[in-house]
């Protein structure tokens, strides 16, 4: 079957099998390798992408579900002039990653939060990112990065 959807703002049309996950289609067929797959059990969040603004585990989400929808991956965050999204910048500035394997998912999950709730409390950030696991940072730099980005995004559109 063929699915058509918006990928990072551009229309795409791709031949898939019903059994293909969105992660497989993104990384293998469309060669967007920024999406990482780790647990394949919807637990770690490394594979998080946004579908119509909502975070999903692309490891266990059929590409079939993307039909007609708007998919955003980490590759879609910088603006047309190549400027990083405030969340990408704040993750760098706050040292919010080491190995980087969780980072795409963390940033996309945080983006879903900030798009809906531009000024979250620490408790809301922690609650929202509860399902994104990081083995390196100890989470505090991530929390700080999301806070920093929230402030930066007040002046960003």
């Amino acid at each position: 079957m063929t699915v058509e959807f918006q990928l990072n703002g551009e229309p795409v049309s791709v031949a898939i099998e019903p059994r293909h996950t969105l992660a497989e289609v993104l990384t293998r067929k469309l060669r967007l390798t920024g999406t990482k797959v780790s647990c394949e059990a919807e637990v770690c969040g490394a594979c998080t992408v946004l579908v119509d603004g909502l975070p999903v585990s692309s490891c266990t989400y059929l590409a079939y579900e993307a039909r007609g929808k708007n998919v955003v991956t980490i590759e879609g965050l910088e603006d047309k002039n190549g400027n990083l999204h405030p969340l990408q910048q704040s993750f760098i500035d706050e040292f919010a990653f080491q190995c980087g394997f969780c980072t795409s998912g963390m940033i996309l999950s945080a983006k879903a939060l900030l798009d809906e709730n531009p000024n979250p409390t620490d408790a809301e950030i922690i609650d929202h990112l509860d399902g994104n696991i990081c083995r390196c940072t100890g989470y505090l730099p991530i929390l700080k990065a999301v806070r920093t980005a929230a402030t930066a995004m007040e002046n960003y559109s």
């Binding site: 919807e42 969040g45 998080t48 975070p55 999903v56 585990s57 989400y61 879903a112 399902g131 994104n132």
Partner: peptide
């Protein structure tokens, strides 16, 4: 329930 991703789907 679960995490944000599981709640969304």
């Amino acid at each position: 329930v679960a995490n944000v991703r599981v709640r969304a789907s």
